[in-house]
């Protein structure tokens, strides 16, 4: 089976500055799958989207849509729809005209246009807003209108650039659920860009982590959490992220420059060696303790009932089976 979307050795260099925004990227998205792309700002996420939808031309490598090289296909003819950061709704057009814009410029007959807009608007529950202007909408409504505008052309691939970033936290959870279902419906695929790793791991079937234009790792959320391929991913993914400590500090038998990665839940408090508690952070039913290990924090997840205060000494040990070892020089996961 050919992938819905694949990029091979994809790279893009800024014409002006000559710096690479994206370099040698190879990824694939299968039908019905969502690929979440996550990374700090400047990591090349948005550049990837713009290459996929055709707003930018690759400097090297290819974009394949259903197995076909898209280089010769102009953006408006790619089966790709984009939801821009901030949504880019046209402020002077009503919701109906915003959704119908693509149909109008393609000279789709008026009756057909109306029918299609009504259908899509109903799907996204914006059918009551069709005569309003974007300024009269709430953030969540704007997001749904932007999705409707993308959906109206019946794309095979959705490109979404931070689709939830302008929503408040409560709306965000609800919108994320609705989005998850919509993006996978009818065998569609999506590339979902966000800077929020928690959002990426909830939405994506696969998550790609980018850093300075390079792919650090692409994996399922579970794999990404359990086996971060690099120390960068280890520090970036998970709440809290992995603690990374020199092997010697934890008495792990390894080369001196090896870093040991430990998830907070793999630190057992109550037995082992004594450590001073540097910080306590409560999270609902649990709390996170930062233990001082030779000046570096080792974060442990413990139940709220355990009564610990800053400055106290507790006994703790790490589960030796669940630790990950990283090469101190390259940051790569050691086998």
């Amino acid at each position: 089976m050919t992938s819905r979307l694949a990029v091979e050795g994809l790279g893009h260099r800024h014409a002006g500055s000559g710096t690479w925004a994206l370099r040698d990227l190879t990824l694939a998205v299968e039908p019905g799958q969502v690929l979440a792309v996550v990374g700090p700002s400047g990591s090349g996420k948005t550049t990837l989207l713009r290459l996929v939808c055709g707003l930018l031309r690759p400097t090297e490598g290819r974009v394949l849509l259903d197995g076909v090289d898209a280089a010769a296909v102009p953006p408006e003819r790619r089966p790709v729809a984009m939801v821009f950061q901030g949504y880019a709704l046209f402020p002077h057009l009503t919701v109906r005209d915003n959704i119908a814009f693509g149909l109008a410029v393609r000279r789709v007959p008026r009756a057909q246009r109306r029918a299609r807009v009504d259908e899509v608007a109903a799907t996204l529950r914006v059918d009551g807003l069709l005569d309003r202007l974007p300024v009269e909408l709430s953030g969540g409504e704007r997001q749904r209108v932007a999705l409707a505008r993308a959906l109206v052309r019946d794309p095979r691939v959705f490109c979404l650039d931070e689709p939830l970033s302008s929503l408040d936290p409560v709306l965000r959870v609800e919108a994320r659920r609705a989005l998850s279902a919509l993006l996978r419906a009818d065998g569609r695929s999506a590339v979902y860009v966000t800077h929020d790793q928690a959002e990426a791991t909830t939405v994506g079937d696969q998550v790609a982590v980018l850093r300075e234009g390079q792919l650090e790792q692409v994996a399922t959320p579970r794999e990404l959490y359990a086996r971060p391929a690099t120390s960068f991913v280890a520090r970036f993914v998970g709440t809290p992220p992995m603690s990374l400590l020199p092997a010697a500090a934890l008495d792990v038998p390894a080369r001196a420059d090896v870093l040991v990665g430990v998830r907070a839940e793999d630190v057992h408090v109550g037995a082992g060696k004594p450590y001073v508690v540097r910080e306590v952070e409560e999270h609902g039913h649990e709390q996170l303790l930062a233990l001082d290990v030779g000046g570096i924090d080792l974060v442990a997840r413990v139940p709220l009932v355990m009564n610990v205060r800053v400055g106290e000494t507790v006994l703790a040990q790490v589960n030796p089976v669940r630790i990950r070892l990283y090469d101190g020089a390259t940051g790569r996961l050691l086998p």
Binding site: R50, C53, G54, L55, P75, E76, R77, V80, A81, M82, F84, Q85, G86, A88, F90, F101, G102, A104, V105, R106, R149, R153
Partner: peptide, 22 residues
């Protein structure tokens, strides 16, 4: 915002249509 030109273009609008309508 430049994303408006890009949005129009992805929807299939020509440069002239983007100028005229957006």
């Amino acid at each position: 915002p430049a994303t408006q030109w890009e949005a129009a273009r992805l929807e299939g609008a020509s440069a002239w249509q983007t100028w005229r309508r957006i």
